[in-house]
Amino acid sequence: MSTTLRTESPRNRRSAARSVDADQLNRRADGTRRPWYSSVIARVVMVVLSVIFLLPLYWMVISSLKSDEELAKFPPTFIPQSWQFGNFVDAVSAMPFLQFFMNSAIITVSVVIFSVISNFVVAYGFACLKWPGRDLVFYLVIATLFLPFPVTLIPMFDMWARLGLVNTMFPLIIPAMFGSAFYVFLLRQFLLQIPRDMLDAARIDGAREWTILWRLVFPTAKPALTTVAIFAAVASWNDFMGPLIYLQDESVQTLSIGLQSFRSVHAQDVSFNQLMAASFLVILPLLILFFVFQRHFIRGITIGGFK
């Protein structure tokens, strides 16, 4: 593949990729228009899939808007007869919502930042550098994917307790600084696809590894790094087991704990509509963030893009 096809520098590659995406609509790469029905078929398929995947969210929202009596209706109604927005007010006032929200946000933002940086650096070590024994060590990374969480629960807690850090957010944040098998593996798979000669060329030009890492590889790995950021955010925001055992004081508890409190009341008497309202409010920030950040799934590697 020659370098003549596309010659943007990494810096303006993003905007170029976006404009390519936009004007590729209904247009083939060679410039001829697609037949009109091909986009219709694609849309029909996607709308059908969308309906299936929207149902859980839809059900959550309408359940949160129903009255107690309507929730008991059989068969269940698909559109609430009266819209009980008060359920949202009740859900928010049933727990220190703002405080829990802030706590969740602090933990999540920290975890995302640390995860992206630490896993990226470690994955670079496994994918872009060559050193003796690298792949054997990598098998160790894979091995840790198969560790069942219940057995690590107690020794980990003992350790944090000895450090006096129970009831702080540190046990939930600090591990993110050291990389995790899942993300390292994920990023490695992408970084291995970066053309070798591109890195070598930079090295011959005298670039230091640290510079190559951030200037050359980081922009290229953006789709994969976005994936890591999204996963880390969702896992941290929805994490239940960690906060449950490490955060006992309400001053540091998170939204997922608040949600659980709704559920574990006398099983006979859960305010289901409020539970669904609270659940929706909890995932709403994630939904919005995802919508905003999904555009970073741009073209990663552009062959010939590096000179």
Binding site: L153, I154, F157, A161, R162, I245, Q248, Q260
Partner: peptide, 19 residues
């Protein structure tokens, strides 16, 4: 909140950790 029926994970960890 508890983690379900007969789940002692919180209290076991808390007692061990002195919290």
């Amino acid at each position: 909140p508890s983690n379900g029926v007969a789940d002692m994970s919180q209290i076991i960890t808390a007692v061990r950790g002195g919290t």
